[in-house]
Amino acid sequence: MTEKKPGWKEYPLAAVISKPGSCTYHNTGDWKTMRPVRDDSKCDKCGFCWIICPDAALFMGEDGYYEVDLYHCKGCGICAHECKKSAIRMIPEEH
């Protein structure tokens, strides 16, 4: 059975999107072929990986390490390449 699609009356005026940041539900994580893995022994929690991630796919965890949000991480590899401590490496994504 196919899902019934909304009729014209059900759309907001002028297709205005009233839910800010609604793309957060979009799984861009399944684009990746490689994913970042952190070596805690090397990481000094500097956070540079966080500020240079184009996809806001890192966030500070409770212990101060920056965790990867794999649902959004597209696997570009910038964090691994930029890490001054070489604490992040990219490994093949298993699908």
Partner: peptide, 29 residues
């Protein structure tokens, strides 16, 4: 480098359709 001085709020949301490694998405974020 002190990330704590930078707002943690992501006003340009994750899940956007920029290409892998998009420099514009990064700049706007």
């Amino acid at each position: 480098f002190i990330p704590r001085l930078i707002s943690p709020r992501e006003l340009f949301a994750e899940g956007n359709r920029g290409c892998q490694g998009c420099g514009e998405a990064l700049a706007i974020r």
